[in-house]
Amino acid sequence: MNLLAVERIKLFSTRSPWWCALITLALSVGFAAIMAGATEPTDPVTISATQFGASQFGIAVVMVLAALAVTTEYRFNTIRTTFQAVPHRSPALVAKAAVVGLLSLVLGEIAAFGAWGLGVVMRPNDNLGLHTTQDWLNVAGIGPVFALSAVLAVAVGILVRHSAGAIALLLIYYLAVEELVQLIPKIGAHIHEWLPFNVANKFLRGSEVVNGPAPSDSPLSPGWALAYFAGIAIVFLLVALGVAKKRDA
């Protein structure tokens, strides 16, 4: 518990988490307002459309937040003090991942329900009620995906250690690589089915094909999709912990 408290203090004593949190909320709610305002009255807005900002851009900002939580310590050499206090290193890094993940979970839920609530207010005649399990996953599922994305970003931050490099790697992969993989002849579509953020999208949206972001082509069910995404995040974190133990701070 002491490690969690220390990591919480370190995280909230810098400005970047606050700015990233505000940007995430602004993007999530802002895109919901755009979707609700720009769509013709005869064309109903869907629940997943209200989550466009959170599911497409909010995740990117959360990963920036998580990567900075680690790389900033390497940049200013405060990580050395942390490792002197916790020689085994892994507990401190796991505590950091837990704190960042919990913050991202809460931030995701606030962003998702805020965007959905705004959609309900702006489009009261559309069917935006949370009536089915998939409806709830569209909204409440944003928090777990944010949390796991943050853990994955912490792992990448530990491995890369440089802010610019970690952020560039995360954003390029998230915003471009998974889509570009589909262009590989013959095998691209099959590889894309198992890429992490595509699978996470299956958890959020199921097989929905109506208005909103393109659905995932993953063959997994929503429940297994979340488990798969969580497994990838945990594997990356374990690899990062192993590397952190073996190299100099």
Rank of each mutant, 00 (worst) to 15 (best):
T81R: 10
S207T: 14
A49F: 07
A153G: 04
T42C: 00
F203E: 00
F203W: 06
R123G: 11
S28P: 06
A33H: 03
M63W: 06
A112L: 07
L170D: 05
F146N: 03
L93S: 12
Q182L: 00
T14Q: 12
P185Q: 08
A150V: 01
N2Y: 06
V160P: 08
L238A: 14
V199D: 01
L118D: 03
L27P: 10
G30A: 06
T24C: 14
A115L: 10
F203S: 02
Q182V: 05
L102M: 13
N77Q: 15
A233G: 08
A244V: 07
S13T: 15
K202R: 14
I172Y: 12
V239E: 01
P196D: 07
I191Q: 07
V64S: 03
F31Y: 14
I191Y: 10
I158D: 02
V120A: 14
H88Y: 03
I234R: 04
E179K: 10
L220C: 12
L159R: 06
L237R: 06
F203P: 01
R8G: 15
A38H: 03
I110R: 01
V156Y: 02
G119C: 12
A66R: 03
L170Q: 08
A189D: 13
V177H: 03
A166R: 04
G30L: 01
E109M: 13
S218A: 15
Q51D: 09
P17S: 12
H88E: 11
A147W: 06
I23Q: 09
A92N: 04
S221P: 01
L226P: 04
A189R: 12
F236W: 08
T24K: 06
A153R: 03
L226K: 02
C20G: 10
V62Y: 04
R123C: 13
A36D: 00
A230P: 06
L237G: 10
V86S: 11
P144A: 08
A115I: 09
G101H: 02
A244N: 05
S55M: 04
A176M: 14
V156N: 01
N138Y: 14
T72Y: 09
I34A: 15
G141I: 03
I59C: 06
V156D: 04
N77G: 14
T39C: 01
G223N: 11
P41E: 10
F83S: 07
K245N: 10
S207R: 13
L171G: 04
A112V: 04
G242S: 12
